[in-house]
């Protein structure tokens, strides 16, 4: 593999970065932001959607700030996992990502914006040529989706990042910045169902930080993930379950989110609401787990088969609720 040539820009401040972004877009040039590079650079080596310019965020100190309520986009996953103010479930999810080396480079912002993955796209250029390309990249050829043939409107590549479901359950807000200005939204509204667009980021826009609501520490819960190996592997399914105020007669609030199953992570509000309304302990968890299984629709484009991943979502949901039943 050989990295294609590109120009790296290293702004020292957010303002400088946004100025560079504006200048590039004004001159009609495409670029990528690079944070830790653990996702982008392997894709570049595979010649997947390579840009001629890359703006590195690594020298921008303000993006590295971390506190109980706010997590900068450039905080490394390892730092998040080890930081004393990190919510324990978020720390657990962070600690389960890839390997120590990758966690040391990879960032919170990068993990949230992780590119979607698919057997038919995360391959070398020669390989992709041999299957006549696919919908996600090499779109100039008008190639069809290789996972679900005869549909080239939607990309079904899978979102396989661990932090999003926990952050969604905690009610996180994501903050974006672009030369046009800043905006914020609930993390749940950040993702956009399509494996290619993935999220609401406009060209030249970036994630600056995540904030958590004041009551984040009142939530307890668990994150469970499915993978072949305990290291390196992306989640084949991930379930975060968080609850509030369990005084023996069930939680006062409950949120469930999943990842690794579709092109975006999902917060399952309806299912959680149903469970809360008729809480009766073990039976409710069983019903909830089954409803989550039904709510997700994985496709055949990762290591495990869709049917297995769905069945395991049920097991993972039950396991994530275990502490709820114990207390």
């Amino acid at each position: 593999m050989r990295m294609p040539p590109f120009r790296v820009l290293s702004p020292k401040s957010l303002d400088e970065a946004l100025t560079m972004s504006r200048e590039l877009s004004e001159s009609g040039e495409e670029f990528d932001w690079v944070a830790g590079g653990t996702d982008l650079l392997p894709n570049y080596k595979w010649h997947i959607n390579v840009k001629r310019h890359v703006i590195s965020l690594s020298s921008i100190a303000e993006l590295r700030e971390i506190s109980e309520e706010s997590i900068g986009a450039m905080v490394s996953i390892n730092e998040l996992a080890e930081h004393e103010s990190t919510h324990p479930v978020l720390a657990k999810a962070a600690d389960s990502i890839a390997s120590v080396m990758i966690r040391r480079s990879g960032t919170v912002g990068g993990n949230i914006c992780l590119d979607t993955r698919c057997y038919w796209i995360n391959q070398s250029e020669t390989w992709r040529e041999s299957i006549d390309w696919c919908h996600k990249c090499d779109c100039g050829t008008g190639a069809d989706c290789r996972v679900i043939p005869n549909q080239n409107t939607l990309c079904v590549a899978t979102y396989q990042a661990d932090l999003a479901p926990v952050l969604m359950c905690l009610g996180a807000t994501i903050h974006l910045a672009s030369p046009k200005g800043k905006r914020s939204m609930s993390l749940c509204d950040f993702f956009k169902l399509d494996g290619m667009t993935r999220n609401v980021l406009e060209p030249g826009e970036m994630v600056t930080h995540i904030t958590l609501p004041e009551d984040a520490s009142d939530w307890s819960g668990d994150y469970q993930k499915l993978r072949q190996r305990e290291s390196w592997d992306f989640p084949e399914a991930g379930v975060a379950v968080l609850w509030k105020g369990d005084e023996g007669d069930g939680p006062s609030n409950l949120r469930v989110a999943t990842t690794g199953l579709e092109s975006i992570p999902s917060l399952h509000s309806e299912e959680a609401k149903g469970a809360l309304e008729n809480w009766s302990g073990v039976e409710t968890v069983e019903i909830l787990s089954e409803s989550i299984r039904k709510a997700v629709k994985p496709v055949q484009n990762t290591w495990f088969s869709p049917s297995y991943r769905r069945k395991m979502v049920k097991v993972l949901t039950k396991r994530a609720c275990r502490k709820l039943l114990v207390s």
Binding site: Q228, E230, S231
Partner: peptide, 13 residues
């Protein structure tokens, strides 16, 4: 055809 998806056991296994 790569060492991410060709699953060699890691130290954990």
């Amino acid at each position: 055809p790569d060492l991410l998806d060709y699953k060699i056991p890691s130290i954990h296994e």
